[in-house]
Design a protein around this nucleic acid. Structure first.
Lengths: 224, 224
DNA sequence: CACATTTGTGAAAGAAGTTTGAAATCGCGC
DNA sequence: GCGCGATTTCAAACTTCTTTCACAAATGTG
């Protein structure tokens, strides 16, 4: 997975440093902004995967900043709010916030929530029967696959195998498991069949073949 | 569940004894420290599940101790504060505290708060088939491991060994026991095989290798 | 301190799993 | 039923992982 960038917006430097430390330990790259203006500037200059936004800030509060970010971007936003602080959850979520974290939080909690939101956003890629993974697009309804916009002609089993794996990306399946899930519970043939289909898929998908990964001793998985 | 350990940090011995008694009645094991230095030493020597930290202490106050603990550990921290004491809630929580308890408290309240924090930490650690230990993340479904967000490529046995140990963190297993649990009850090979896998795991996990500990004369365990 | 025991390491043989190419079989449309 | 692409089977070649072994290093003991 490539490095992911998180923008921290908080008026207190101490807090930014603390959160930044947590995030960097977990492998995120961090950008910091002390107010909404700075945040908007950074957002327009850098690709950002998520924003951590303090609700209570002097110039513009988190809600206002959230609204302004939403005018220009769909980036996931997580609110940070202190325990007992006046906090309108509904308002935050209505404005397009994706989650909120109540201080105090442990590093683990912060990372877990952030990962959860990033995963959820990932899932939105699956929309209206279409799956998009960078240059690879799978259209379930139309039963077509394109790589970098160019159509790739797949056979029936190839398509179903790819679709199944893509729909369950990140999870490893054994060959037997795939035979059951893709070929049907009553299929009795040889598990090596899966290998051959993976081979032909990889051949046809060219660059996009990197999505289909062999997990030694277990089986195959799709990485998106 | 194996016994859980709580570290009590308070300059007053009377208080430590009282809290210790409450905790031991509730089935916790207790460690006691009279100041921040002692606390840090004990933390580095023992696996601790939570820290109860008095705010008002002569040498270093609770905030300072909290900050120093956070430099090296994600262990949950609960502040203890006397009613009416000058107490900056926000500061404590910002520094990474997980909760605070106002003295005087009943045994019931102490235990309830402590359990609540431990549950929360547990939940965050085991989320959706993922285990998180600071910078080390283990994804069972995807059979992937990351350290500080960077993927680490493990072989089948390495992964299974790590997963097993992590799922039973805090418990020591003999090599023979691990052979049975990870390799299978009917495995007949040499127990030194485990050593080799531990070696390669440690090599690949880099910093995170500290989680896998040798227990001389017994075997190995995972410390999270 | 010297001894016995346990643990760590590197290299290499051995075992296991995966990929590949070719050939056999299936099944649908004509 | 025939033809042809799709699917499945198979086994050899290949890659990767696992285990073992010998020795070094560390730890505990009398």
């Amino acid at each position: 997975m490539s490095e992911r960038t998180v923008l921290i917006v908080d008026d207190e430097e101490e807090m930014r440093l603390l959160v930044g430390m947590y995030l960097e330990n977990a492998g995120f790259r961090c950008l910091e902004a002390g107010d909404g203006e700075e945040a908007l500037v950074l957002l327009s200059q850098h690709p950002v995967d998520a924003v951590l936004l303090d609700v209570m800030m002097p110039k513009q509060d988190g809600f206002a900043v959230c609204a302004r970010i939403r005018e220009q971007s769909d980036v996931p936003i997580l609110f940070l709010t202190a325990l007992g602080e006046e906090w309108d959850k509904v308002k935050g979520l209505k404005l397009g916030g994706d989650d909120y974290i109540v201080k105090p939080f442990s590093p683990g909690e912060l990372i877990a929530r952030l990962e959860a939101v990033l995963r959820r956003v990932q899932r939105v890629r699956e929309h209206d029967g279409r799956l998009q993974f960078g240059d690879l697009a799978i259209d379930e309804k139309g039963r077509t696959v394109t790589v970098g916009g160019k159509p790739v002609k797949l056979t029936l089993k190839e398509f179903e195998l790819l679709l199944f794996l893509a729909k369950h990306r990140g999870q490893v399946f054994s060959r037997d498991n795939l035979l059951v899930k893709v070929w049907g519970y009553d299929y009795t043939g040889n598990a090596r069949t899966v290998d051959t289909h993976v081979k032909t898929l990889r051949m046809k998908l060219k660059d996009a073949a990197r999505h289909i990964q062999t997990v030694w001793g277990i089986g195959y998985k799709f990485e998106g």
